[in-house]
Write a protein that binds this DNA or RNA. Structure first.
Lengths: 199, 199
DNA sequence: ATTATCTATAGATCTATAGATAATGC
DNA sequence: ATTATCTATAGATCTATAGATAATGC
């Protein structure tokens, strides 16, 4: 026990990293500080030397979880690729390392002011990112299209995790994915603004 | 104290009714049995004469909350009407009496087997209902379109409740609503398979 | 001397149970 | 006599704090 200042920082990072994972898996109320500390390899007593309150950990963990989204966006080149990566069984089954906006969607409403503010900023960033990925020739407003896509992605990943029927879960992921791809794809014959006669 | 069998039944219904409202507002873990009993006008000690466990109350309350959806569906004549009623600020601000699929979306994943099974059945009913409302001439699969609409509705209502910026919240509701209406509308010039001349 | 972490526990909250009380209903 | 509800509490869990311990770092 009683290590250096440098060690304290890595301990702190370990605590936040464990929390960022477990909160996404079990919800913001789904794991207590004692269990987080234990999984980080320390005991509960030191917690308040690291955080002023439990909610401070929640805020830090949320910020850390959002970093995964920044990385995700950096590796995303177009909207179809984003849709194909987001709506997968692998993502559905790994909420702890997946999209925190999705994993915590339902928890945020009941969260603290700071938690909601942080989440709100992340939503704004995602909307800006999605808008920028959409083709400018798209009919209608790019902003509204981005709002629809974000809502559908968050709804579908949550729904696919909620239902207990595996084949329905798969159907949700693939159905919504294909439907959204159909909306953003450079529009083949079917959906052209100038319909080709006979189709 | 100590009323008739008839009174027990109405007490039971009052407990479930309070729970159906509060669970939607605060989540399945957001209110304890003591507070539910108190709001129903009884004390906590009688709880286990009404329910075998807390989870039994959750299941009954969920079933009761879903009855509001049955009523909603009965009063819904077309998809545009459904979208216009669902994605409103009034609905966003009244989760306790609103759509339970939306209010509890994020909680179900961590719910009991019975809770998830009940939720899953309700999702299946909603998908069948939405499919039936869609015009059969719609390009693409009606089933996939219904999956997209349900995901977008649940995602948007949750997102509008989560964000702390009121104007963003409004934008989500109205943007997704208009975008979905654009997808299902008997299609003006842009996307109609059988465009009516002059419309 | 300071401090990072430890053991121990206070105090709040929650589910579930035990036993008492006062009506109902054969 | 049965039973619907009551008061009271056991036992588990959780956040937060107090004080001890054993390293670090001036």
């Amino acid at each position: 026990m009683a290590h250096s200042k440098r060690d304290k920082q890595t301990t702190h990072e370990r605590i936040v990293s464990v929390a960022a994972k477990r909160f996404r898996e079990r919800g913001l109320d789904g794991i207590g500080v004692a269990d987080v500390m234990k999984e980080a390899g320390v005991t509960v007593g030191g917690f308040y030397k690291h955080f002023g309150s439990r909610d401070e950990l929640v805020v830090e963990a949320l910020a850390t979880a959002f970093k995964d989204l920044d990385v995700w966006e950096e590796h995303t080149e177009d909207m179809v690729q984003l849709l194909q990566n987001y709506l997968t069984e692998a993502h559905r089954d790994a909420p702890g390392t997946g999209c925190a906006m999705g994993a915590l969607l339902g928890d945020i409403t009941r969260g603290s002011k700071s938690v909601r503010a942080l989440y709100t900023e992340r939503v704004k960033r995602s909307l800006a990112f999605s808008s920028a990925l959409l083709p400018s020739s798209q009919r209608g407003d790019k902003r509204c299209r981005a709002l629809l896509i974000l809502s559908a992605l968050l709804g579908a990943i949550n729904l696919s995790r909620a239902v207990s029927d595996p084949s329905l879960s798969r159907e949700i992921l693939h159905g919504v994915r294909d439907e959204l791809i159909g909306l953003v794809k450079p529009a083949n014959a079917q959906a052209s603004p100038n319909p080709i006669p006979g189709l």
